[in-house]
Design a protein around this nucleic acid. Structure first.
Length: 438
DNA sequence: GAGAGGTAG
DNA sequence: GATTCTACCTCTC
């Protein structure tokens, strides 16, 4: 199965079609550093919503033994002694940096799959040498133009590109770029023999346990397994992983997903909510966010689910009320969505401590696929209230206008706690970075 | 078609 | 006292 260099020579001009995986190193931390050079070289963690736990660590923070998911309250007491800096999640900043990275990457390939906020697959072509050079070019272009470090893994399949990317990250000698097929076969096998299957894309704890039970421990063990047997014992998903390890590409590059199946707006609260009145306000905010997001994607929802929940860390007195409302017609209208979300309120027991709540819209479809019968036309949509709210929010900032109970300003102590938030450097005029020339 | 189980970032 | 959030896929019933 291994691709030998000889095999390339037999093809026209030695050119092959491959997949590059470009991934920003510890993305949130790097995005923070891009605008605050004083963070360079220091241990840095970025915290989850409500400053709950560490989600991203700079290499220096990793070296301190801080793990992902570690609660901030456990780390905080030693932060000073370590010189550790913590930042609250600044999704607006990260989203903007991500868009810049992706735009830049799109200049290097017409075949781009944005896989997540910080990584993308690119279809690439060239001889092994050209591919290695392309990887280096991309790496330095992103660093220079956007200011964040990336690593590049290039291989014949997505699974191997992921693996190559991981190797590029962990092996400083590669200077951030690994072309899988340019590695000598014995080196590739040694690497695969050293790594546990859990390091693979698509394999996590459950599968690892079951694979280990069959005597499959290393990636090399899995690469040598019989794909059909794996399909029968596990699933087609894991069979694809085996085939991809063997060099057969079977996970295609996907064009941009436009139709989502569902959207969820949900959050844990910094302080629990105990009254239906407060929850009404929360629901109104989420319903209007959902409305705006649906409109942005040109989608309408047919079903809305509203839910709330108490903490799982408090097993006595648990409650997970939820309602599922089928909307009278597919809609993105904020008035209808807000009203639907409020059907949860009668299920709320006053005094119960709800720590999370949210809404989910499902059964989404493109706007205006078939126009509703006149009798069912929605008066709010006609008057464009959704668009109006969005325009105002865009111009004057989120929270400047809201419908009904979402419009109440001040004192919502359930809003997200983000005490270590950095400025939204790139998306708000009053938060631009200031540069001083001596 | 719904729900369970699994996974990713 | 404190432990993220969103979205997808496949399998089973």
């Amino acid at each position: 199965m291994s691709e030998t260099p000889e095999r390339y020579e037999t093809r026209a001009a030695g050119t092959i079609r491959q997949i590059a995986l470009v991934d920003v190193n510890c993305f949130y931390a790097s995005a923070e550093r891009a605008f605050d050079p004083s963070l360079e070289g220091r241990p840095l963690v970025v915290l989850s919503n409500n400053d709950g736990c560490a989600v991203t660590r700079s290499p220096e923070a990793k070296a301190l033994g801080i793990s992902v998911g570690e609660p901030w309250f456990k780390i905080a007491p030693r932060a000073k002694e370590w010189g550790l800096v913590a930042k609250s999640s600044n999704y607006e900043l990260y989203g903007d940096i991500s868009a810049r990275v992706m735009e830049l990457l799109s200049r290097y390939s017409a075949w781009l799959e944005v896989y997540s906020i910080d990584e993308a697959f690119l279809g690439v072509k060239g001889t092994p040498d050209e591919l290695l050079r392309l990887g280096q070019t991309i790496k330095s272009a992103v660093r220079r133009n956007v200011g964040v470090p990336v690593c590049v893994g290039i291989a014949g399949t997505k699974t191997l590109a992921k693996l190559a990317n991981k190797w590029a990250k962990n092996n400083p000698g590669l200077n951030g770029v690994c072309h899988w097929d340019s590695m000598p076969a014995p080196a590739r096998e040694a690497l695969m023999a050293r790594l546990s299957v859990i390091e693979l894309w698509g394999v996590a704890t459950r599968l690892t346990k079951r694979l280990n039970g069959m005597g499959i421990h290393s990636i090399l063990d899995l690469a040598r397994a019989d794909p059909v047997r794996i399909r029968d014992r596990f699933s087609v998903v894991l069979m694809r992983t085996v085939l991809e390890l063997q060099g057969t590409a079977c996970i295609p590059l996907e064009e941009e997903r436009i139709g989502r199946d569902q959207l969820i707006f949900s959050r844990s609260f910094s302080t629990p909510i105990t009254t239906a009145g407060d929850l009404r306000q929360v629901m109104s905010v989420y319903a209007q966010q959902a409305s705006a997001r649906l409109a942005k994607h040109g989608l309408q929802a047919k079903v809305l689910t509203a839910f709330a929940g108490t903490s799982h860390y408090n097993p006595q007195d648990t409650s997970y009320p939820s309602v599922c409302v089928t909307l009278p017609m597919p809609t993105a209208d904020p008035v209808l969505l807000t009203r639907a979300s409020h059907t949860l309120l009668p299920r709320i027991q006053e005094g119960t401590r709800y720590v999370r709540a949210g809404i989910m819209v499902t059964d989404l479809r493109p706007t205006g696929q078939q126009s509703p019968l006149p009798a069912f036309a929605n008066p709010h949509e006609e008057r464009g209230i959704g668009t109006l709210l969005e325009d105002i929010s865009r111009r004057y900032g989120r929270g400047s206008v809201g419908l009904g109970h979402a419009g109440i300003r001040g004192g919502p102590d359930w809003s997200m706690q983000r005490t270590m938030l950095s400025p939204r450097y790139t998306t708000h005029w009053d938060e631009l970075p200031v540069v001083k020339a001596a």
